[in-house]
Amino acid sequence: MEDEKIVELFLARDESAIARTAEKYGAALRKTAERILRDAGAAEECENETYLEAWGLIPPHEPRSYLFAFLGRITRHLAIDECRKRESLKRQGLFCELTREMEECIPAGSSAEEEADAEALKSTVNSFLEKCSEEQRNVFLRRYWFFDTVPEICARYGFSKSKVKTMLFRMREGLRRHLEREGYII
């Protein structure tokens, strides 16, 4: 079913919206959560929670053109939050790798104690992505949005491992400089 029709079901408060969403995007959402949670049960909980949150958010939101981006944001946030709470997950696996890589982007002098303004940070990340080429942006998002491994990115685009690693390294450097320019330092 097309995204627009699924969104119409949500707007009409038709509960079949959830079943249609699950049919179309359930596997992808679960996979995203499972990549960093490494726990099929917890990933399924994130998936189900995503539907409930979407039910509460549509309306007022109407993500007609690309529902997956809207749902994926919710799933990612739930999974990251769960990892943050679960110390055992925080210290191992892909989540550990990803957060360590993100740490490289945080400007020196940025206060770890101070909670960043989430909306402002999203906008800054977007203004950074806007300056990148489509190829760079895709690789960056496959890694940090979809949580792909480097070999998976290589297979997707036919790039060598060193090319992907170098691209990601340069983009993390670029993001750090961008954050500095945007004032993310004390």
Binding site: A118, T124, V125, N126, R156
Partner: peptide, 30 residues
Amino acid sequence: MKDYELLDAVGGAKEEYIKSAAEGKKSSGR
């Protein structure tokens, strides 16, 4: 700012960027 806050913020990437990354070609490799 904490590492996971930045990772979470990437989630707010524009829809068109996510779409492009989602639809990006799967190459048969070189």
